[in-house]
Amino acid sequence: MDLVRDVLDKRLLDRDDTIIGRVDGLIIEVHGDSQPRVTHLSVGGPAVFARIGNWAASLAKLLGAHWGPKRGAPVRIAWSDIDHFGRNVKLTISCEDTEAMAWEDWIGEHIISRIPGGGSK
């Protein structure tokens, strides 16, 4: 498997096929002399901002500290929660089990639901 070609930037689907983001980064552990091991996928900020540049990461950190869902750690998904790879990366877990939708939920709750008519079409 080629990590950059087959995993990085692919769309992430949870077990119910909800789009929960894209693979914005890979977390690799290195222990002493043993082979490096991919342990997690990272989703959304700050991984995604770091890929634009350090300035974007700092800016996002600054804004995130004052505004938004204020989730604790960056969203990571364990390699063992991956079901299979293909056009998308399919997971065995539900989006509820992660904080990947924190922004979607926060914007929905704090902004969209306060505008009339956002709940139906």
Binding site: I19, G21, E104, I112, G119, K121
Partner: peptide, 15 residues
């Protein structure tokens, strides 16, 4: 960026 994006869903679903 991997957000929900359907124009057929209510705004709440793809905030």
């Amino acid at each position: 960026l991997g957000w929900n994006w359907s124009e057929n869903e209510p705004a709440q679903r793809d905030a």
